[in-house]
Amino acid sequence: MFDREYSFRGKHSEMVIKLTGEFTLTSEDGTNVKKHSLFKRNFDVYLLAPIVGFLYNRKADIDTTPQGGSTKIWADIQMNNSDDLNFNYKLIMLLDKENEPDPEKRIDKAFRGIKNEADEQLYNSYVLGGVEVLYENLIDKSSDYIANLYDFLETFENRYNTDVNVDDVLKMARKLSY
């Protein structure tokens, strides 16, 4: 599954391009300008998106419209990172009770290598749904991407009650504020 090139198409391509695009931050006195990006590569979005899509119960279909073009993740990047990608795939197959209520079948999908096209399409729908969630929360809200990131992390922390130290995130955001 992760041994070939992957393409984001249509609106998802546009979203990934914006998620990986550079933005500038200027110091308050206007003398220091730095370029940053929320994600360095398309692959970084692809690695996080299925988990976000699953956690937010967000799925999306492939956009086949001609607008938006496509953006790719090369096959060698997929293959070199197949352990991480397979971990995400197995985790989702194991936890997805909505699409497979039988725990034995979920275990088969996750650990016994029983894959089928429907499961791969389900995984991809979580990828695309996750791209949409990331885009809506990090880019689409406002042009203050650092504030968007902070808000998203805070919402995520509240939603899943994880142990994210807000003070550490604020310190990091302040370091990037120029």
Rank of each mutant, 00 (worst) to 15 (best):
G113Q: 10
G130V: 08
N116F: 07
Y150N: 02
N137T: 04
S143Y: 13
Y150T: 13
A110L: 06
R112H: 10
Y126W: 02
F152Y: 14
I114Q: 11
N148F: 12
D144P: 08
F156N: 00
E120W: 14
D84L: 13
Y89E: 05
K90R: 15
L122S: 04
V131L: 08
E104H: 02
I92E: 07
V127N: 12
P101I: 13
N116V: 05
P101T: 12
K141C: 05
N137L: 03
P103C: 02
V133E: 15
S125H: 09
G113F: 06
L134W: 02
F87Q: 04
L138N: 09
E104V: 01
N116P: 03
D151K: 14
A118Q: 15
E120S: 12
K90V: 03
N88Q: 11
I114D: 07
F152I: 07
I146C: 04
D151Q: 14
K97S: 07
A147R: 12
F156S: 02
K90G: 11
R112M: 11
A147M: 11
Y135F: 15
Q121P: 00
D84K: 15
K109E: 10
E100R: 04
Y89H: 09
F156Q: 08
S125L: 00
D140C: 01
N137H: 11
V127C: 06
A110S: 15
G130L: 03
Y123T: 03
V131G: 10
D144V: 11
N86A: 11
Y135N: 10
E104A: 06
L149Q: 14
N137S: 09
E98T: 14
L94M: 12
E132L: 05
L134P: 03
E120Y: 10
D119H: 01
D83H: 06
I92C: 13
F111S: 05
P101H: 05
I146G: 08
G130K: 01
G113R: 02
S142F: 07
G130A: 02
V133C: 10
K109C: 00
Y150C: 02
I114H: 06
G113I: 03
E154V: 07
D84C: 00
Y145S: 01
F111V: 07
E120H: 13
F152L: 09
D84W: 11
G129V: 03
I114R: 12
N88C: 07
V131N: 13
I92L: 13
